[in-house]
Structure formats: C-alpha cells, structure tokens
Design a binder for these strands. Structure first.
Lengths: 239, 239
DNA sequence: CTGTTTATAGTCACTACGACTATTAAGGGG
DNA sequence: CCCCTTAATAGTCGTAGTGACTATAAACAG
C-alpha cells in the first residue's frame, strides 16, 4: 500500500472551502459567492479555491479568507479545519477533494470585494438553499461544530470585537444556538470561569442600546471551559 | 478561484492514514506497519494507502482497515475522520495530502496479517517513536480526540466486546485518560445516563479475574452523554 | 480460614446551575 | 417632567450532579 510507483495512484484536485460565519444585526450570516459558470451556475456557494503546490490547506484557507473578505489582516481570525469531503461525485467535472474550514469574524466587515470576479456577500444563515455542490452539508457541519465548541471552549469571543459587553457575548450563544439564555445565570457562569473574560478598566459603554449601560470586557487567556456551558437540553446531539 | 481550467491546479496524491486503537492487557495499543523502503525505511508508520478513483476517503479508510487488521467484517467498527494533513513537505517524494482517520477496536484481534507485504502489528501506544512522516502527530491527535470524545459521547463502548462489565468500561476511560477513576462514582454516573449501557438479562460473569463477579452490560442506544463525564481536572485542554 | 481483590450499596457535603425576584440606570413618549 | 420599557446587575432558593468516602458482598490465592 505504501509503494509509490508513478502509476499507483490517481491524481486529485485538492481545494479548500470556507464556511465564514459572523453575526450581523443579531443573526448568523455566512459569506457566500454566486457562481457564474457551470456547474451550478447562478447558485450560491462557499468561497474557496485550489490549494497551490507550495502551500498547506491551512495556508490556502487563510489566503482565500483574506481574498474573499477583502480584509487586510486575517491573521487574528479564528480559522479551523472542519473535515474533508471526498465523495467521488461531489464535483461533476472531475475528482475534487475539498478540505473544509470554518472561520469566525467579529465585526461585520464591509460587504467587501476581493479582486475576484464573483462578488462575495454576507447572507443570513443558512443562505439561499440549495447551495452548489455539497456546500449545504459543509455549512451545516460548520454551524454544528461551532455550536458544539461554544459549549466547552471560549470560542464565542471570536465573534466579538476586542471589547464587548456580556450582553453581546450572550447574543453570540443565543444566535448560534437559537435559544434564549437567562441573563443573570449567563453572567454568573462567564464571570465564574477564570480567564474567559477580563474587565476593561475604562468606563462602561453608554451609547447605542436602550437600558442600563453595560461594563466592557476583553477576551481572557483561557481557551477551554471547565465545566462546560451546556446548551439547554437539545437532546440527541450524536458524535 | 472557481475557474477549473485544465491547468489551474496542481494534482495531488490523496491518501488515508489510519490510527487504529485498541486495548490489550489494560494498555492502549496502536496498529503499526514497518516500512520496507525509503523514505523512512525501517521506521514504523500508520497503516494507510491511496484513495482510489471511485471511492471516498471514508471508503478507502474502511477498505484499508479491513486489509490491515485482517478482519472479515469491519462494518461495525468505529471509524471517524480526524483531520487532513497537507504540509507541502510531509512526504519528501511528492505532494501527498492525507486524510487521517481514527478507528477503535474492541477485542484485541489476532495479530493478523493482511495480504500485504509489510506485516502490521499491535504496539503499545505511543509506539516506537519517531514514526515515519508526520505520523507521530497524527497518532497523538487521534489519542487526544478519542480522550476528548470519551467525555461527552458513549464512544467508550467501541473499545469493548458486545457484552462487558462496568469494570471493563471503566478501564477504557482509565487507560485512555491515564488516570484512575473512583469505582462507585463511575458506576453511578454510567447507570444514571439513560441509554449508555443496558443490563444483560443472563447471569453475571464468573470466570477469569479475581473478586466478586460483575454484571454484564451491552451498549445502549445513546450516543451523547448529557451531562458529560469530565476527566478529573487536567487543566489546559485547548480547542 | 485469611487476606486480597473487585463489585456493589450507600452517605455526606459541596458545587454548579435552573428558575426566580429585585434593583439600577439608561432612553422614549407623552 | 413623569412613567414606561429595556437591559444590566445583584441576589436567593432549591436541586441535580459529583467528589470523597465507608461499608458490605462475593469471588480467588495462599
């Protein structure tokens, strides 16, 4: 099996596909591009592209992330490998194996425009289904993964700007999970977890929303949540 | 980025690598093959092989699993995609992208022998390091993933034969985590989780070990563990 | 028979959390 | 200006889950 003579294998095209998620106006949005050519012309798809000869899939994903969002610096963004999709028929033209990534953005950046022909746009999750190829599945897997990781990691801060209120942090959970959370209990849990958030010494935010102004926090150094912050009994979430 | 003209991409070889884990004599073992040729001749490596033109990575992984373990039926075994390793230099000969899988076996099967030239063998984890290629990393990632999934899924039963005692189930946790667990507390937790295990109506196992004979259980229908069974404070397990 | 080993039963205290109520501090509409 | 709405924050109460532990039962080794 490990003999690599020249004809022992069939060459594949290897691509990356990106499920880029953000929160706009309290709703989960995904970055999508409209396809201009067959197959699936006119359909929306996840941004992505070929892995180049001298880069890893991670490199390719971050390069595509910069290109498609139009952001100058994407080095601080959360980017994580989801899994690889390799069904023989997933692209009708040829054998394409795609390594999927999930990326999380804090501030809704400008609708942007890369140098690319196809314009990428933020559309409310789950987007205009069906997406091209198996991208519905990839996007759903990304959503599921992010929802699960909110439970036992500090990932939620990746959706927030550098300084944020506990209300904004709670909205991340509520939006991704699709459930309402008890305000005081959420606050107690977050503040009781060492390293999740740390208070900003400046004054509380005043402007914008109604209600009592909230204190500002920054992301702390912790990455894991022990014990986890479990979703309210949404039974049956298998492996 | 999505224009697929014939020369827009470089072809890659796509392989699967398998981290096959089992418990033998109370120790975690991995299935490894000794390499007969360069590069890394004489080193041990994870079993694996090329993905064929008409199969998915999952198909290839299960095919390799059957070939390398020599088992007639591998359809019931737990096989799960880990992640994809794609560093440009990971194989010195050519550009190889590898989709890694973790597989779990219950009964230590015979040391086996596939039709393959290289004989695969069970070696105690983490094996004779360094392994070939980036296989140390893959194997470590598999161990980490399995350890994490024991916390919030019913995966532990994948290491057990169809009927098992709670002591055997507890040994799975202790062996993978490398920590001792309190017997009564473990029992209470497992039995209190609906669908984790269900009692076998027959008699308790008598033979073999010392001590009071234990009752036999089968795996239940549940896949998730709510609330999870957390490892005793092994702080700092990041994303 | 005795000591060792493992399974099983049960207790106790503390933590974490769900479900609340109450208070504070803003904005908006009249 | 007052009052209503909204959201942040403070605090209470009861309970499930769990860590630490003791006790008993049932096998085997000598």
């Amino acid at each position: 099996m490990r003999g690599y003579d020249k004809y022992a294998f069939e060459p594949f095209a290897v691509t990356v596909d990106l499920a880029v998620l953000t929160l706009r106006a309290g709703a989960l949005h995904a970055l999508l591009v409209e396809r201009g050519q067959e197959p699936y012309a006119g359909r929306w798809a996840l941004p992505g592209g070929f892995v180049r000869p001298q880069e890893s899939a991670e490199d390719a994903a971050r390069r595509e992330l910069a290109e498609e969002t139009g952001l100058a610096d994407v080095s601080g963004l959360h980017l994580e490998q989801l899994r690889t999709y390799s069904d023989p028929g997933r692209d009708p033209r040829m054998r394409v194996v795609s390594v999927a990534f999930a990326a999380l953005l804090p501030d809704p950046p400008e609708p942007h425009g890369g140098g690319d022909a196809a314009q990428a746009r933020w559309l409310p999750y789950p987007g205009p289904r069906p997406l091209a190829f198996d991208h519905d599945r990839i996007l759903a897997d990304a959503h599921e993964r992010v929802g699960a990781k909110l439970e036992y990691t500090c990932l939620a801060t990746a959706f927030c700007p550098p300084e944020f209120t506990l209300g904004e942090l709670r909205q991340v959970y509520e939006t991704v999970w699709g459930t309402a959370l008890d305000r005081p209990n959420f606050r107690r849990k977050v503040l009781a977890t060492p390293g999740f958030v740390e208070p900003v010494t400046g004054a509380a935010r005043l402007t914008g929303g109604r209600g009592k102004p909230a204190a500002l926090y920054r992301a702390g150094g912790a990455t894991a949540l022990h014990p986890p912050l479990l979703r309210p009994a949404t039974e049956g979430r298998p492996s």
